Simulated scan of single mutants.
Amino acid sequence: MKKALAVLSFLVLLFAFTGGASATTFTLTGTGLDADSDAWWSYILYSYTPNTDTVDLDPLESAQVTLGHAVVNWALGYEEDVTITINFTSPTGIDDQTGTGSWSAGAIFNIGLGELDWDETPIIIDYGLGGHALLSLNDQAGLFGCDGFDITATLTNGCEPVPEPATIMLLGVGLLGIAGAGRKKLFKK
């Protein structure tokens, strides 16, 4: 009986320290793309279609997500500021995130050459009790045609949120079990 209690206490402690890591479901949409220039001679005429993508990520796992699809119809000029708004529907409680960068293109009748260059800093997303993820927008460059191009990002799940009350309870039960087994052993001698 003592051995069973000691083994059970050890397993409870082990589970408390390792946690029950499982996949987190992320659902996100690139809700808006906005290109803006201060120069009168620089102009990009484009259409944008939002996309909703859902991925299940284990801790420290990454996946590419598609935020939307852009088609450049006409472009004249050098460089314009560009922002994209990203909405998370799961996990819940995440505010809308914004990515910024620059967009340079030259196009006529949907065919052209250009570059969409996002800022290097990944977007840090906090969720739950201590969970976080990183979202890095992927640059696009080269020749684009009538089909346009997808706006993509790499999403990395940093860690699972820690359910603090459950962790403390598991740790406490494990310590009580070990203390109880040690106390019985001490009084038997």
Score class of each variant (00 low, 15 high):
4 A>W: 11
5 L>I: 09
8 L>F: 13
10 F>K: 10
11 L>Y: 03
13 L>G: 13
14 L>G: 02
14 L>S: 09
18 T>W: 08
19 G>R: 11
23 A>R: 12
25 T>Y: 01
27 T>K: 05
29 T>K: 08
30 G>I: 06
31 T>S: 15
31 T>R: 09
34 D>H: 14
35 A>P: 04
39 A>K: 12
40 W>I: 14
42 S>R: 12
46 Y>D: 02
47 S>P: 10
47 S>A: 06
54 T>H: 10
55 V>S: 13
58 D>I: 08
58 D>W: 12
59 P>N: 06
61 E>L: 02
65 V>R: 04
65 V>K: 09
66 T>P: 11
66 T>L: 09
72 V>T: 06
73 N>A: 09
76 L>S: 15
76 L>D: 14
76 L>Y: 10
77 G>F: 07
78 Y>S: 08
79 E>D: 14
80 E>D: 09
81 D>E: 11
85 T>K: 15
86 I>Y: 08
88 F>C: 06
89 T>W: 07
90 S>Y: 07
90 S>H: 10
91 P>W: 02
93 G>A: 01
94 I>A: 08
95 D>Q: 10
96 D>V: 03
102 S>N: 11
102 S>L: 12
104 S>R: 04
107 A>Q: 01
108 I>A: 08
109 F>W: 12
113 L>F: 14
115 E>A: 06
120 E>D: 11
120 E>H: 06
125 I>N: 10
127 Y>F: 07
129 L>N: 12
130 G>W: 01
131 G>T: 03
134 L>M: 01
134 L>F: 00
136 S>V: 03
138 N>V: 06
138 N>Q: 00
138 N>E: 02
139 D>R: 02
139 D>S: 07
142 G>D: 06
143 L>K: 11
146 C>S: 14
149 F>C: 05
151 I>E: 13
152 T>M: 07
154 T>Q: 08
156 T>K: 00
160 E>Q: 07
161 P>F: 04
162 V>G: 04
163 P>W: 07
164 E>F: 12
167 T>H: 05
167 T>I: 00
169 M>C: 02
170 L>K: 13
180 G>Q: 05
181 A>E: 09
187 F>C: 04
189 K>G: 13
189 K>R: 13
189 K>W: 03
